[in-house]
Simulated scan of single mutants.
Amino acid sequence: MIEIKNLNKTFDEKQVLQGIDLVIEKGDIYGLVGVSGAGKSTLLRCINGLELFDSGTLMVDNVHVNRLTNKELRYFRSGIGMIFQQFSLLERKTVYENILFPLKCFKSKMNNVDQKIREVLELVELTDKIHMLPRQLSGGQKQRVAIARALIMNPKILLCDEATSALDPNITQSILELLKRINRELGITIVVVTHQMSVVKEICNKMGVLSSGKLKAAGPVQDIFLNTPELLDDFMGEENYRDGQSDQKKTKLEIILRSGENDQILSKLAIETGVQFELVWGGLNKYSDSIAGALMIRVRDEEYALVEAYLNQHRVEWRKV
């Protein structure tokens, strides 16, 4: 669906995107994460042609974005919906008129426009707000209107730029549930730019980590969190449990628990081997619709071989830290 190869972009002689290679497949909910200035929003704007880039290739649905004429680019953008942190609604227009606005901008000749607007309002659960003005809506309701507006052109792709950053946790959760429903029922590919790790865990099946304009890691969300968590420490605001403290008489092991695996492994390890260990860190997290996590233990060197043998025998994924 979206294929990016060796993409580079500069602003005022500063390189903001460097050698980006990324593939987003049809049906993905793909998260782009990074601190402010990492380049994630710029990359998002390159995808829909709002930003030009210096070199490399960017294809969306087999279309080379950088080869489009202005007229072709306008048509291309009509197939990509976008929602923002600040909603960007027309304050003097009703909900109905805000949703209608893209159709007017693109001079669309869609049949049954009124019916279509009412359908998207039903999808976002705002049918009773159809004639209200934005000032009469809550923040969550405004974002639902923005989503409905993005959907009115029947896009194949929905780009979300910090779409939940201005919302409280409960409203954020409801918006994420709505986005998952849109992805599931309409088959729309969604790209989410966010600095909120909770959003990535909740909604995304894949993610890319950007830092200083470079893509540091990309792949399934669980793999990134479990295999390269050090890349995410700055974003998560959590203490780095890889504390680097040396202990000559004990060894640290990290046990990986993927979706559907036995999260009682430590209890069984202790009971069946008699090994006494310290739990250094542990946590299970919800990733979209599955549960996974990691546990770190410290064992005495003389018992390390016993623990290693037990984990291998039970086909538990682990690594020495």
Rank of each mutant, 00 (worst) to 15 (best):
K9S: 09
Q15I: 04
I20C: 02
L22S: 10
A38E: 03
K40V: 07
L43M: 08
R45N: 11
R45A: 01
I47Q: 03
I47A: 01
F53Q: 13
G56R: 10
T57S: 15
N62C: 06
V63P: 09
T69I: 09
N70G: 09
F76R: 14
I80W: 00
G81Q: 03
I83G: 03
Q86F: 08
I99S: 04
K107W: 13
K109I: 06
N112C: 08
V120W: 02
E122G: 14
K129S: 10
H131W: 07
L133Y: 15
L137I: 12
Q141M: 07
K142H: 06
R144A: 06
V145I: 06
M153I: 00
K156V: 03
N170A: 14
I171C: 07
S174M: 13
K180M: 14
I182R: 14
I188G: 04
I188F: 08
V191Q: 07
V199E: 05
V200A: 04
G208I: 10
S212T: 07
K214L: 04
K214I: 08
A217F: 01
L231K: 14
M236I: 11
G237I: 13
N240H: 12
N240D: 13
Q248V: 05
K250Y: 04
I255P: 04
I255V: 03
G260R: 14
I271D: 03
T273H: 05
F277M: 03
G283K: 05
R300C: 12
D301R: 15
E303Q: 10
E303S: 12
L306S: 12
N312T: 06
Q313R: 15
H314Q: 09
R315L: 06
